[in-house]
Amino acid sequence: MINRILDRLEETLIITFMAAATLVTFSAVMMRYLGGSGISWAQELTIYLFIWMAKFGAAYGVRTGIHIGVDFVVNAVRPSIRRLLIIAAMSLGVIFTGVIAFFGGRWVIFIYGTGQISPDLEWPMWIIYLAIPFGSGLMCYRFIQAMMLFFRSGHIHTHTYGEEEDREIDVIHEQEVRS
């Protein structure tokens, strides 16, 4: 249940950030094209929206199996070694994203203490930097989820298209509900 809510929240945030960035950019260009001065803070907001979108998008990529991976070596070795390589890769993913989330959290605390604000929007920078611990923390959680799925079933998330994707997601959620 909590995973389904987290899945929808993740997807909603990604869509919202992307749509907002597109709308802000389009509006700024149209205002400038129509002879106005444009929106002075549009570029800064668009950059921040894309940063947040990318951090949550990376977690989504791990969850759905669309994250870029080099699997040539993994697919070329025998199954016993393949299992070790997959576990090692996922473990490194957990460690790396966990470390980034931890130090990202420390960075947010540091920036909060400095009172820095963004140049055009004049927003507190610590809020903008929250993308690092939130996005990396979620990505770490997704790596842990993927590793647990691998331990339970021997399968890793793979991305398929259309109806197959829907069936795969349903199977994964059914497995999560059972456990």
Rank of each mutant, 00 (worst) to 15 (best):
E164H: 07
W107C: 05
Y129D: 08
V62D: 00
N3E: 15
E176S: 07
G61L: 02
G154M: 05
P133N: 02
T160L: 09
F134Q: 04
V24W: 01
F26T: 11
A20H: 05
I109F: 05
R83E: 07
F50P: 00
F102H: 13
W107K: 10
S153K: 14
M31G: 13
D7S: 14
V73K: 14
L49S: 00
A58P: 06
I132S: 04
P133K: 00
I87D: 08
R167E: 15
A131I: 08
T22N: 10
Q43L: 13
G115P: 15
D170F: 03
V94N: 02
L6Q: 08
S153Y: 06
I127Q: 08
I5L: 13
M18P: 02
F134G: 08
I156E: 11
V171P: 03
R82W: 04
W126T: 05
T46V: 04
G98V: 01
Y33V: 06
E176C: 00
G135W: 00
I132L: 13
M139E: 13
W52V: 00
E44W: 06
E164Y: 04
S27R: 14
I14R: 00
L45E: 04
M1W: 08
R106W: 02
A59M: 09
Y161S: 14
A28V: 03
I51D: 01
L149G: 14
M31Q: 13
R4Y: 05
W107Y: 14
G57V: 03
G135Q: 09
T22Y: 04
W123I: 15
G115F: 04
P79V: 01
A76R: 12
A20T: 12
I81L: 15
G93F: 01
M31W: 05
Y129H: 12
L34E: 08
D166G: 07
I117F: 09
I111Q: 09
L138P: 02
L149K: 12
V73F: 07
G162R: 07
E165L: 12
I47G: 09
R82A: 11
L85C: 07
Y112K: 10
P79E: 08
I95N: 10
G57S: 07
G137S: 06
L138G: 05
G65R: 03
I172R: 10
S40Y: 03
L34Q: 10
E44P: 15
C140R: 00
A19E: 15
I14F: 03
I132G: 04
L84E: 12
Y33W: 12
Y48R: 09
F72D: 15
Q145Y: 06
I156M: 11
S27H: 13
A21Q: 01
Y141W: 11
R178V: 10
A89M: 11
I5F: 07
V171N: 11
P119N: 05
L49P: 00
L9W: 08
Y33T: 13
V77D: 12
G36S: 03
R32L: 08
L45Y: 03
G105S: 11
D120L: 03
I47P: 09
E164K: 08
G135N: 08
S136N: 14
A28P: 14
V73G: 13
R178M: 13
A89V: 09
E176F: 03
S91Q: 09
I128S: 01
L130Q: 13
M1D: 12
Y48M: 10
G57Y: 01
Q43R: 09
